[in-house]
Design a protein around this nucleic acid. Structure first.
Lengths: 199, 199
DNA sequence: CATCTTATGACACTCTGTGTCATTATGTAA
DNA sequence: TTACATAATGACACAGAGTGTCATAAGATG
């Protein structure tokens, strides 16, 4: 039931000719060359040889062109929570679960240097940084469910999942700001500021 | 050197006739009555009897009409860090400092029910919720400085201040969603998910 | 009163994001 | 092959956010 490359629901109709990944990559190039706010959606559409409206069909907003590529990471991280389901877990396991989920996202990134560029762009623009709250919402909800399944109260689970997302996002930002190849140590260190409250 | 009510830099010139607080209050009423996105800046300006451009002079964005009122809270919270300056503090004191700062903001709120309405409006609109990152930025920076002053590494201080802001914001959101008069217990509980890493 | 300073608003503009609708291209059934 | 259904595309129009420019209004000061 997970999202695959297969497309069974395809009875007929005109096939798509636009490659979203290519368009997003092109947009990132334009952002890098002319700056984020100096590049309009019309500029991107023209460069991609498509209409502005078509561009909006694949990317709901300009920010989505930057944040969209992080979806698989969030998804992989979300799936990793599955390994920690079930009853009878101690406190240490909860933190380990969060750690596993945070690290799992790293594995599915094909090119870390692209991600670094993306995150640096995000760091430079408050408009994009703010989007983290929305873009990470699925992951926050998944973490919330995981914590509740492991015995935390609804209230404590919300506090902890909020802190968890903020800390891991900060870890990614710190990694992106530097030149270390591996983001994992940053994620591990970030989780040290978390505490699982007694139940 | 802190911001006061005094306005020494006032040589001459036409005095202002617009009361920002009144305009913001009016805007909140309109948002409550017709909905946030159904109320345009032009609507607000017309209702306030001023020009749209004048409205933008007092509020840089539509979101500022909602978030602007939280500035004194952030400021008071920021000032509270002052009591914890100086060397020779143990780990427990660091968390106590964060707790004091978080609670200090509550005291300066004249009408908690207004704040609750504001936060509920924020919770309902992702566009407004996202703004928390920007609106809380001064507080985050102040917390960061406090943590560094108290011996944390730059890296750990960034992780902890990020988690601190996220947890306290979540505390305010949870308080706003319910009907408890006092937000302090929520703030205290939220800080229990934090851990000061060893130095 | 003359003048300086600042607030205000009228106007025009760019850009984001959305809705509508005709057109195009493809797969499938007759 | 010929309809026909289905879906993609883009042309067009539109509301609204946010910005820049500039003329004007209204006090304060000399």
């Amino acid at each position: 039931m997970t999202s695959e490359d297969a497309k069974p629901p395809r009875p007929s109709g005109r096939p798509a000719t636009i490659d979203p990944d290519a368009v997003a990559g092109l947009a990132l190039d334009l952002f890098a060359e002319h700056g984020y706010e100096n590049t309009s959606m019309e500029d991107i559409a023209r460069a991609a040889g498509i209409g502005r409206k078509s561009l909006y069909r694949y990317f709901a907003s300009k920010a989505d062109l930057v944040w969209g590529g992080t979806e698989p990471v969030v998804e992989a991280s979300t799936l990793a929570f599955g390994s920690f389901h079930g009853p009878g877990k101690s406190d240490g396991d909860v933190l380990a679960g969060l750690r596993t989920a945070a690290v799992a996202g790293v594995a599915v990134i094909p090119d870390l240097s692209v991600t670094r560029g993306r995150l640096r762009l995000i760091a430079e623009h408050a408009e994009l940084t703010s989007r983290s709250y929305e873009s990470l919402a699925p992951q926050r909800e998944r973490a919330l469910a995981f914590l509740i399944e492991n015995g935390l109260s609804d209230s404590a689970a919300r506090f902890l999942s909020a802190a968890y997302l903020a800390a891991t996002f900060e870890a990614w930002m710190q990694w992106a700001a530097g030149s270390d190849p591996d983001p994992v140590p940053y994620l591990i260190a970030a989780l040290e500021v978390l505490n699982v409250p007694p139940r």
